[in-house]
Amino acid sequence: MLAVLMACLPLYYLLRPFTAHNPVPRWFLRTIAAIAGVHIRTRGPRPARRTFFIANHVSWLDIPALAGATGTAFIAHDGLTEIGPLRWLCELNDTVFVARHDRRSVAAQIEQVRAALRETGALAVFPEGTTSNGTELLPFKSSLLSALDTEADHIPVQPIWLDYGPETRGIAWAGTEPGLDNALRILARWRPIGLTITYLQPLSQDERANRKTMAQAARCAIASAMARCR
């Protein structure tokens, strides 16, 4: 992984002045997912280049896999900014950092998301706010979806189901397991990790009436897909 990073960094900075959507982070993250043993299969209607994704969250593998498949940037908790090297890597992929527990800054965070949608294109959020065990969905937090109420009404909002199949419980980063322990445990596996990325139907205009409606509609779409395939 370090060798791939060292190879990609010069190319990233070489291309940076010439493109608004640098492809190198997508190549890098796709390769990281492959090195970790993730075999990606996609189903459903392919997304537009400019799309707001709403996905369930099971593992740190979700991020390189989804970014590698779609080129999306992410909305992430600002706790990651305390880890310097990790923050730097996230910023290379245009990550939007937000303080989800600071209600006083919600308006500023919404403006951050709107700006990212205009500048980056695809943007993804994990509205559960944390990883789950992968077999059920946690409640969806809706505050940041306010960014889509008006100014971004022309951008599709597409739910995504990330499914690790029978390996889900072994892959999930849930409970009290430290992040480093989880990463080392997954990287030590010999068997490949199958991941199906299911692109569900974009939300309709009625389903986008407001942020709470969007959160509920996206959660229902993902839950229905999970129920059909269990």
Rank of each mutant, 00 (worst) to 15 (best):
M1D: 06
M1F: 11
A3H: 08
L5F: 13
L5Y: 08
P10D: 01
L14V: 07
R16M: 07
R16S: 10
F18A: 08
A20G: 13
H21G: 06
H21F: 09
N22D: 05
P23R: 00
P23H: 03
R26V: 04
W27V: 04
L29M: 14
L29E: 11
T31H: 08
A34P: 05
I35S: 00
I35E: 02
V38Q: 02
V38R: 01
H39V: 11
H39T: 10
H39C: 10
T42M: 02
R43G: 09
P47S: 11
T51M: 08
F53E: 01
N56K: 07
W60A: 08
W60P: 11
L61K: 01
D62Q: 04
P64H: 09
P64Q: 10
A65R: 03
L66V: 09
A67P: 02
G71T: 00
T72Q: 03
T72M: 03
I75T: 00
A76M: 04
E82H: 14
G84P: 08
G84C: 06
L86I: 15
R87Y: 05
C90D: 00
L92E: 04
N93W: 12
D94R: 15
D94P: 07
F97V: 10
F97P: 01
V98G: 05
A99N: 14
A99S: 15
A99I: 05
R100N: 11
H101Y: 14
R103D: 13
S105D: 15
S105Q: 15
V106A: 08
A107L: 11
A108F: 13
Q109P: 07
I110P: 01
E111K: 12
E111C: 06
A115G: 12
A115V: 13
R118Y: 10
R118L: 11
E119T: 12
T120V: 14
A122L: 05
A122M: 05
A122C: 09
L123G: 01
L123T: 02
A124V: 10
P127C: 09
P127A: 08
G129T: 08
T130W: 06
T130G: 11
T131A: 08
S132C: 09
G134E: 01
T135F: 13
F140I: 02
K141R: 15
K141I: 04
S142P: 01
S142R: 08
S142Y: 02
S142M: 04
S142L: 02
L144G: 00
S146W: 03
S146D: 15
T150W: 11
E151T: 15
E151H: 13
D153G: 04
Q158D: 09
P159M: 11
L162T: 06
P166R: 14
T168P: 03
T168G: 03
R169L: 13
R169S: 13
G175S: 04
G175W: 02
G175Y: 02
E177F: 05
G179Q: 12
G179A: 13
N182K: 08
A183I: 15
L184P: 01
L187Q: 07
L187I: 06
A188R: 15
W190V: 12
R191P: 02
I193F: 04
I193C: 05
L195V: 04
I197C: 09
I197H: 05
T198N: 04
L200Q: 03
D206V: 09
D206W: 07
R208M: 00
N210P: 01
R211V: 01
Q216H: 07
A218W: 00
R219C: 04
C220R: 15
S224H: 13
S224N: 13
M226P: 10
A227N: 09
R228C: 15
C229Q: 15
C229R: 15
